[in-house]
Design a protein around this nucleic acid. Structure first.
Lengths: 259, 259
DNA sequence: CAGTGGTCTAGACCACCAC
DNA sequence: TGGTGGTCTAGACCACTGC
């Protein structure tokens, strides 16, 4: 590796390490040499190596196991096709596990909380909950091969969910919660999603087992019923390096469009 | 500010600085105290303050002007509504400047390159260009109030674009390039977008005036004509903290769907 | 217990900015 | 020319891992 003075050393080192990962010098799932070894090999201080690794961690290329070493991630992104995932609900489980099981990965869902809550202001606004109206919340974390892939917190206006026991159970039954909403006369017919990127907060870092600099998608998924009333808001928080989001739509310029 | 031993100091400092920004102690557009001043005030070394600021930079809360100081960003996200931006093309300019002009921001587009090229492999694959077929490329950078907001590189199969002079000019004429494609018999009727997040490479950092740790959206927007042939691929690279992406669609489970 | 990464420091030199 | 952030170092102590 040639060190040129124009670029910061830690960036050159990051580039070099990325190249070695691409060339399988360091293979997926295995550990890199320790920071001290790399520092000795490259003739820099350990702090500089650490700073280079900070970049690789922010891009999701490596992951640190504390006390054990720095490991190469095996990162193949999961495709999340917005239309298909909800269309697939008639085939079995809810939308939550569609992508993962399709990739022959082992899927698991942990329910953190199911119950009646006073929703956050922004969520209440989206659901058009006036005053102090409550919502049913379903908080869960989804895993693929025991790696957390997303947090999904779902809110349903309480006056809609009220009386439907299935929605209070982890397994909401065949077709998932949307099928229950349909039975309650509020079947979703239209969806919107707002997508943002940001850094995770403390709780998200813990739940998703990621670091502060690894960006996450935050998706606000809203389902509307035939009367155009919002009947569910699901907030997804997903490590950005794990996912590709796909959307598709037809041109509405020529036909009569809603807008 | 209380320092508790359990959390790293640089994280506590980052939290404190974020709080001060939220409370307008440091106002948008103004500079923070220098790293040395903050270090003295908080009783830590300058390196520790610098590390805290690294976090604020990665989340887009502050921006460094080298030699001058660290400034609070005035960050209000721009809404990019996928359907509307393309539907709006009949009203005037192309889709590129829809969101920005709608916010009363001054919009500007710099064309970096317009010409015939051999497209990158992945782009050629999306456009189904066999062998060594060329494409027309239109590379541009868009600005709002002189701040770069996105890179947009558009590829059109050369055999479609061939002979249309307007597509070789910066101003592709009324309705933008999609109207030209329509005149050529390849008007787009369907779109797909694949959305990824990643860290920017060197060139993107320069063009967008952002740092290595600030994540970007990469959107592959593909337009299909009535025969379902891909007629344009536009690759957008956009600083993640500047944008909210919006998509909406109708449920297709009950009606006869394409899928 | 040895090895790993996490953090922090004091001091240093540099390029860049504004005056 | 003085102040700013960018970078780098050597050394230190810590918590955690795995043997």
């Amino acid at each position: 590796m040639v060190i040129e003075p124009s670029k910061p050393q830690y960036i050159q080192i990051a580039d070099e390490l990325r190249a070695r990962i691409d060339q399988r010098v360091y293979q997926a799932g295995t550990s890199l040499p320790s920071e001290q070894r790399l520092a000795d090999e490259l003739g820099v201080s350990r702090v500089t190596v650490n700073k280079a690794l900070t970049l690789l961690r922010a891009s999701g290329d490596v992951k640190v196991r504390r006390g054990a070493g720095t490991y190469v991630r095996s990162l193949s992104r999961i495709l999340r096709d917005a239309k298909r995932r909800y269309a697939a609900r008639d085939h079995g489980t809810g939308a939550g596990e569609v992508e993962v099981t399709g990739l022959n990965l082992q899927s698991r869902t942990d329910y953190r909380e199911i119950g009646r809550v006073h929703p956050p202001t922004a969520a209440a606004k989206v659901l058009r909950l006036e005053g102090d109206k409550d919502a049913l919340v379903r908080r869960r974390v989804l895993y693929a091969n025991n790696e957390p892939t997303q947090i999904a917190d779902s809110y349903i206006p309480w006056d809609i969910a009220d009386g439907c026991d299935a929605l209070l159970r982890a397994d909401a039954g065949k077709g998932g919660s949307y099928s229950r909403l349909a039975e309650l006369g509020h079947g979703p017919v239209r969806f919107t999603e707002d997508v943002n990127v940001r850094v995770p907060d403390d709780a998200e870092q813990r739940l998703l087992d990621i670091e502060a600099t690894l960006p996450v998608f935050e998706i606000w998924h809203v389902a509307y019923d035939a009367e155009d009333r919002p009947v569910e808001l699901c907030i997804h928080v997903m490590p950005g390096h794990l996912w590709t989001l796909r959307y598709d739509w037809d041109d509405e310029t020529r036909s009569g469009a809603r807008h």
